[in-house]
Design a binder for these strands. Structure first.
Length: 652
DNA sequence: TACCCTGGCGCG
DNA sequence: AAAGCGCGCCAGGGTA
């Protein structure tokens, strides 16, 4: 193997050209972790076939702003070289492809059709429990730790040791080359393993999906900075006001974020009676979902120490300060979220969230920097345990989804699945009752709610429906009677009745769960409909496989629907997907094509070729992610813009 | 100082 | 150790 360091750009181009059509590894060293604002210091490559590896480097330690600015030429030329030399027939291996591709500004989708292999995704498909950093993947799968010797050569100052861009170029280049070699070894090791496990079709699907997600991340989503600024000020004022109220009530100032201090203030200094913690340590025997009798002393429990969760404060303490603390926490949290967005927005007002393919145990995407999956909606949850999510509508500046707006000439179009997990559970378990409920279009949660609690008036029924929903998932995924008892403030007898009603409604729950655990016990993993595997070796956690095959199965379904949607949108030129939120695709669509798109994508998302039962959707439209209004579906199932849509929207 | 863990809370 | 599941982010508090 010929190793070449300190390459000039023209040497680099020449060698890269000789590797065209082969399999190569590319790795970059950069000034940070954000592809859209960090800069390249180093690019390494490794090609076993041609017995050559090499690295180009900016050639200096990047310390000052001046140094940072000096990187521009190197970046421009380096990107140009890679862009022009990657051609169809070449396979490029990366560890975390989206990042390196972002730094290099290349993607086979938009350039010359070369092929991607991402070793981080390989690791994830092999065993989603493993850490995906190159260092830990190497340790786990190759049994070596080659980074160590390189890091030891780096400057000893702990700050600089973490900043590769400040390392001497020679050490940095060796480090980068080493990463390339390790990445190659990972690919070489894992490829036959994935093949043997029958995971290659899924792997290639994920590589295709990766390119699409790369596209989505680069397009980004437009942030309304004016709204964010306004809301941020409002939150700050609200926080100050509520803080003062709390201090006045307690009688002194303290750090309310510290649960130790808050607990002391409430229960000691103010003398509020300490609540009995419903989630405290449980003793003795209880029945598991599968009917096993388990005798055990469970240590700890939730909220056992400080008893300051909103749930306890509001539902058990019943003191006005509970509401105050909850509102204070909310304002503070929203304030921090808004400020994070201002930090993460690019110079064009665009937010580039990361949609991580390797982030979850089950195969779902996760979103980070910022997380677009958990943005507070206009409906405020009241209970932290998720038992009740209806009721309180947030005022405009509290609805943070208002911050994400459609670009000029576009509307936001959201299409989500109706009862996706219930539907999937019905299919996966083959539960006849559930399937017929779903096929009939009946509101299963409401029906169960009426059966359990009776008709208590429309408003109360809707609350019961929310409870019913949570309980349904809880029971599918292994919630015990004790937990249900406490959460709903029921007696054991009542809780048992609720459970019996559910098991009566969905008789396949228990056998399906049992089969999942048995399969996992036999082979160490379970396999979803999509072919993805979920591993678990510890028997007492195998019940989690039930959730995994539903949650992960839905995720793989959505990824297929999303790829078909993306393709359709590109062909039509009507707009783009801007976010993927578990059971929902958020799109930005040209105003004049909303109805056509809603109808076409609804059908596409049903994936009628994959399952007996179509996955029905709901469509909503708006100017922002926060003001989506449900579209109207006529008797023929055709979607239309809501009545008076423009009029309603324009007042805002 | 730089981690690591935990609690709290937003979403599906 | 863990018996509804899956995330990410922030802040506090303890430890090396």
């Amino acid at each position: 193997m010929l190793t070449l360091t300190n390459l000039t750009l023209s040497q680099f181009r020449k060698i890269l050209k000789t590797c065209s059509g082969s399999t190569i590894v590319l790795d970059t060293e950069t000034t940070g972790l954000y592809w859209w604002r960090s800069k390249l210091t180093t690019v390494g490559f490794h090609c076993l076939e041609k017995q050559i590896e090499g690295v180009i480097d900016c050639g200096f330690e990047v310390v000052t702003q001046d140094d940072f600015d000096r990187l521009d030429d190197f970046n421009e030329e380096g990107k140009e070289a890679i862009n022009s030399l990657l051609v169809s027939g070449t396979t490029v291996i990366f560890h975390n492809a989206k990042f390196d591709m972002g730094m290099l500004e290349v993607c086979p989708e938009t350039t010359n059709g070369w092929k991607i292999i991402d070793t981080a995704v390989m690791v994830h498909l092999y065993d989603s429990r493993l850490k995906k950093s190159l260092e830990l993947a190497e340790k786990e799968l190759l049994g070596t730790n080659s980074k160590r010797s390189h890091i030891e050569k780096a400057p000893t100052n702990p700050k600089i040791r973490k900043r590769i861009w400040q390392w001497p170029p020679a050490i940095r280049q060796d480090y980068c080359l080493n990463d390339c070699r390790v990445t190659y070894q990972l690919a070489e090791t894992l490829f036959p393993v994935l093949k043997k496990l029958g995971l290659l079709p899924l792997f290639w699907k994920d590589m295709q999906y990766l390119k699409q997600i790369y596209y989505t991340e680069h397009l980004g989503i437009s942030l309304d900075k004016q709204f964010v600024g306004k809301a941020s000020l409002a939150m700050m004022a609200k926080q100050k006001e509520l803080e003062q109220k709390l201090y006045d009530a307690i009688g002194y100032e303290f750090n309310w974020r510290s649960n130790d201090q808050l607990s002391k203030a409430l229960y000691e200094d103010l003398g509020i009676a300490r609540p009995i913690n419903p989630f405290a340590a449980t003793k003795g025997s209880y029945k598991t979902k599968l009917g096993f009798e388990r005798v055990k002393e469970l240590k700890g429990g939730m909220y056992n120490k400080t008893m300051t969760s909103t749930f306890l404060l509001m539902e058990k303490v019943h003191h006005p300060l509970g509401e105050l603390v909850a509102s204070l926490r909310e304002a503070a949290k929203l304030y921090k979220t808004l400020n994070q967005w201002l930090d993460l927005v690019d110079e064009n007002g665009i937010i580039h969230s990361n949609f991580n393919v390797t982030g979850t145990r089950t195969g779902r995407l996760s979103s980070s920097k910022p997380n677009l999956d958990n943005i507070a909606s206009k409906v405020r949850s009241r209970f932290t345990q998720g038992l009740f999510s209806g009721g309180i509508i947030r005022s405009e500046e509290y609805n943070l989804r208002n911050a994400f707006v459609a670009r000029l000439g576009y509307y936001m179009l959201s299409i989500d699945y109706r009862q996706m997990e219930m539907r999937f559970f019905g299919i996966d378990s083959g539960d006849e009752n559930l399937l017929s409920f779903l096929a009939s279009g009946k509101d299963i949660h409401l029906m169960i709610a009426l059966k359990v609690w009776g008709d208590c008036g429309k408003e109360q029924n809707m609350i019961h429906r929310e409870w019913s929903k949570t309980i349904a998932f809880g029971l599918i995924y292994g919630m015990t009677t004790g937990s249900l008892e406490h959460k709903l403030g029921m007696t054991r007898v009542q809780a048992n009745k609720v459970i019996e009603d559910y098991w009566g409604a969905f008789p396949r729950i228990r056998p399906w769960l049992f089969e999942t655990v048995t399969t996992c016990k036999e082979q160490g993993y379970i396999r979803y409909w999509s072919g993805r595997i979920w591993r678990e070796n510890t028997e007492m956690f195998m019940y989690k496989g039930a959730n995994a095959r539903v949650q992960g199965g839905c995720a793989d379904l959505l990824s297929i629907a999303a790829m078909r949607t993306h393709k359709w949108l590109l062909e039509k030129g009507y707009g783009n997907i801007v976010s993927y939120i578990y059971d929902e695709l958020l799109m930005e669509i040209r105003k004049e094509h909303i109805e056509e798109t809603a109808n076409a994508i609804s059908v596409i998302m049903q994936v009628p070729d994959l399952f007996e039962l179509p996955f029905l959707t709901d469509c909503s439209v708006g100017h922002t992610y926060g003001d989506l209004v449900k579209m109207y579906q006529d008797e023929n199932g055709i979607w239309h813009l809501p009545e008076n849509f423009e009029k309603e929207q324009s007042h805002a």
